[in-house]
Design a protein around this nucleic acid. Structure first.
Lengths: 246, 246
DNA sequence: AAGTGGTCTAGACCACAAA
DNA sequence: TTGTGGTCTAGACCACTTG
């Protein structure tokens, strides 16, 4: 079963990908409905004329994409349709605006160091009394308010933030450069602008705003909590489902 | 270099995972900073005392997670910190509520078949004149309005929807059971409830609402477009960054 | 030109779970 | 008990890309 080197032209797709696509077509086109059991790796290796490991790679890719479930002895079975899972990329605001060719600036509105109070404890999930830095600022796009930012930084995790004035650089970007975060959680909601938010964002009171809360960890240590408030007419998030690269 | 069967106890992590973890630690703890080039697969195979393919699997997992970039001849290089990418799971509303133990019902508010007009073309991205089914309905949680749904279904892609009355089943669930979609795109935004939305959802006019628009494809064919409108106090989305399973 | 990763083979042993 | 997938080996040839 030695492979014929001429069976693939230069740059052609690898064999395991061809097999993956072939099997995938059978599933998504309904030829193999949910619950159907695929032939075993050995059988597929025989029918495709390749080594078992090549089949294993193709089937592993199908399993990665949740198209099938694989269990020893039970075999490989077609899944019922997956839950809707999308990949949401939430970028640094500055990067986002610069990518659109819009002038960006960050304007600091407030900066306080304190020991964590009850609200800080709830937001950042750290013990009461931990030193935190509370920042408020405005992201400006083309000179106009784009988003309001309320941020807490855990000074125990990022002591060097105590001395930083964040002049000309947004806290988000400053942190991103220094702290390699390993985990993040986003909460997305809508709210009506109150008087203060409306004033900062130069919108009418009551205007619907999209809020994004982000918690960031480095391993198990909490780094920062931030809430970004966007006027409804200036922002939307796009999340696209995508297959994991195989 | 035959493998010692006693080197792994039953159920232990596989060798490639151990190696993956070992290399990952060096990266996330800063021992191998961004730009650092890892030893070649051959060298690593020698130092870990395993076959090159096992190393390749571990390095492949690091690349999947964007911790490293791999290129022929150039080698495997540590990446600079990744963009903020989160996985957002948007479930079927019914499944979501049932998981929380809340009684669920779907109430149809309108149902029309027509040939795609300009608005339909914009929403669904199909040629004008294509037959579409336009549905409006309310998702009820514990008997109270939970979300308002406006949906378009491409009847060319799902002809059997023409005869379906959607009594007792939401269109989303009905579709999910029949059509194995392959791609989806979500757009998330905020809006102020207008008079009609406020009436259906039993909220005050102007209340901020979270809207989720979803477009669904099967391969290149457009299946459906749906807009869900949630009152701000009843819904939020959570997206969590996570490493891809390896 | 040479070294790197990408892919593949033809075996092998084992863990696991279903029959 | 037995068939399945999970993992691994020790090679091999090749594509790519950089020096």
């Amino acid at each position: 079963m030695r492979r014929d080197p001429n069976s693939r032209t230069s740059g052609a797709v690898p064999r395991y990908r061809e097999i993956y696509e072939s099997l995938r077509q059978k599933i998504v086109q309904g030829q193999w409905p949910p619950g159907h059991r695929l032939p075993s790796e050995h059988e597929l290796a025989r029918s495709f004329g390749c080594a078992r490991m090549t089949i294993g790679r193709a089937l592993g890719a199908l399993a990665d994409q949740r198209l099938v479930t694989r269990r020893r002895r039970a075999g490989t079975v077609v899944n019922t349709p997956r839950p809707q899972e999308s990949v949401l990329e939430i970028h640094d605001i500055e990067a986002e605006l610069v990518a659109e060719g819009v002038a960006y600036a960050y304007q600091s509105l407030g900066r306080r160091t304190r020991r964590a109070n009850a609200a800080d404890v709830a937001a950042l999930g750290i013990p009461a009394g931990t030193p935190v830095l509370a920042l408020t600022g405005l992201h400006l796009a083309a000179g106009r308010p784009h988003a309001l930012e309320e941020r807490l930084i855990n000074l125990q995790a990022v002591p060097e933030a105590r001395a930083e004035r964040f002049a000309g650089i947004s806290p988000g970007r400053w942190l991103l450069r220094r702290i390699p975060w390993t985990e993040a959680e986003h909460r997305i909601a809508a709210l009506n602008a109150d008087a203060a938010v409306a004033r900062y964002l130069a919108i009418r009171r009551g205007t619907a705003c999209l809020t994004i809360e982000r918690n960031t960890w480095r391993d198990t240590q909490r780094i920062t909590h931030v809430r970004l408030i966007y006027p409804c007419d200036q922002h939307r998030l796009v999340a696209r489902f995508r297959y994991r690269p195989i």
